[in-house]
Design a protein around this nucleic acid. Structure first.
Length: 421
RNA sequence: GGAGAGAUGGCCGAGUUGGUUGAAGGCGCUCGCCUGGAAAGCGAGUACAUGGGGUUGACCUGUGUCGAGGGUUCGAAUCCCUCUCUCUCCGCCA
């Protein structure tokens, strides 16, 4: 969320940001309400000040055994007025809060302006897509032929967009999780294993709620949500805390299962592992000083890229345009891996700087000096990487004509075999 | 799930016949004195949010905050209600 005072004193910046994001949100009503809010607040505080001083006098008189009935009568009326004004104030604040929580982050100046993903800009590419001298199969066909992926039985047991991994398929999934956690831990990310469910306030903290409730799975009969990414519990790890500046930056990596309702994606990527209701992911999360967060974003992106490089999977890095940028992000690099059966690059990681947008929502602050004023820190995160899509990319990029799949060199120690099949 | 106890400032911990308690005391921290230096000792200072004024984050001032929300009252950390979390015991379970 944006700082209310920032919105108040820089309405033109916010309006421009909304426009760049093709948002229809109108700010003018909001600004009028803010003016109104401050007026009511001013009035109510004046009355409270009066009540406080008169109440002191009542106490004084009673102590001296004097009568204070006249003051009490008078204050009874003031009390009524205060209550009425507070009701008004609460109503205005509730309405404003709704809007404030739905204003997206202001894109960084280096973000290209665009209407949708077609406005994304390629920053760099790595590796060369392999030339096949046979027709490469899609990963779901490879997986089913090798009997390491089973979508049909998952449909029977649970439903569409779920899958079973079997044998070396299950082992490959597990190997990728271990591999990535090991690599990132070596780079200085502290591993955490988070809860897979969080309460509503954590979802609000990272920006999934209130706007995108239909995308989340909620546990019926509770206030818990299944996490759509480890970003949610790990970023909220320090919610409502004030961190010493010398502890920053903090780097965490976390494996978690991720659960997404995929509302509105009917008909898209219905086959295979690309778009599932449940998938595994290793996530990188950073807490940074504000002045360093864009350097940290570059490093974070490189760290996510290194996993693809070690697995020798071709990819490209895209700077997302204002039309494709996520709600909470100020800037995002997507890593897109080459998928032969799609004959294109597909998103496998998303690395974002949220600046203080999430930190303000979750109240995560830091102190530069022991007696300094707390400031909001900057949060960042990126997939390092989405495991299911990585597995799909390995199956497709490493497939052989005889139907087997070669195991990437980096994974052989984890797999114990050189081929699947 | 059942029974009980509790939640106060960075930490520990007073305060439960409602009225100079934003909150005693201690620890920690910051600055100063002392010292060749350090420790000890002494002195001073040590919350956050928000409204208004202003030399527009020097400063002055109002309001709110003693787990969260609501209520009673002229006035609530103190009384009432609801919720959350923590601890102990029992039950259950991986």
């Amino acid at each position: 969320m944006l700082d209310l005072r920032f919105v108040r004193s820089n309405p033109e910046i916010v309006k421009e940001a909304l426009q760049k994001r093709n948002s229809s949100l109108s700010l003018d009503d909001f600004l009028k309400q803010e003016e109104n809010r401050r007026k009511i607040l001013f009035d109510v505080e004046k009355l409270k000040a009066q009540r406080n001083s008169v109440s002191d006098e009542v106490g004084c008189r009673k102590k001296n055994g004097e009568d204070a009935q006249d003051l009490i009568q008078e204050m009874r009326k003031v009390g009524e007025e205060i209550k009425a004004l507070e009701r008004q104030l609460r109503k205005v604040e509730e309405e404003m809060e709704k809007v404030l929580y739905e204003i997206p982050n202001v894109p960084h100046e280096s973000v290209p302006v665009g209407v949708d993903e077609s406005g994304n800009v390629e920053v760099r590419a790595w590796g060369t897509p392999r030339q096949f001298d046979f027709e490469p199969l899609p990963h779901y066909e490879i997986g089913e032929k090798l009997d390491i992926l089973d979508f049909n039985r998952a449909g029977k047991v649970t439903g569409a967009r779920f899958s079973f991994y079997k044998g070396l398929g299950a082992k490959l999934e597990r190997a990728l999780i271990s591999f990535m956690l090991d690599k990132h831990t070596e780079k200085g990310y502290l591993e955490v294993f988070p809860p897979f469910m969080v309460h509503r306030n954590s979802m609000i903290g990272t920006g999934q709620l209130p706007k995108f409730e239909e995308d989340a799975f909620k546990i019926e009969g509770t206030e818990y949500f299944l996490i759509p990414t480890a970003e949610v519990p790990v970023t909220n790890l320090y919610r409502e805390e004030i961190i010493d500046a010398e502890k920053l930056p903090i780097y965490h990596c976390a494996y978690s299962a991720c659960f997404r309702a995929e509302a509105g994606s009917a008909g898209r990527d219905t086959r295979g592992l690309i778009r599932q209701h449940q998938f595994n992911k290793v996530e990188l999360v950073k807490f940074s000083l504000p002045e360093n967060s864009y350097d940290e974003l570059e490093k974070l992106t490189r760290d996510a890229e290194s996993s693809l490089q070690e697995l020798e999977l071709p990819y490209r890095v895209m700077n997302l345009s204002t039309g494709d940028l996520g709600f909470s992000a100020a800037k995002t690099y997507d890593l897109e891996v080459w998928l032969p059966s799609f004959n294109t690059y597909r998103e496998i990681s998303s690395c974002s700087n949220f600046e203080d947008f999430q930190a303000r929502r979750a109240s995560i602050r830091f102190r530069r000096e022991p007696k300094g004023k707390p400031e909001y820190l900057h949060t960042l995160n990126g997939s390092g990487l989405a495991i299911g899509r990585t597995l799909a990319a390995i199956l497709e990029n490493y497939q052989e004509e005889d139907g087997r799949v070669r195991v990437p060199k980096a994974l052989i120690p984890y797999m114990g075999v050189e081929y699947i099949g």
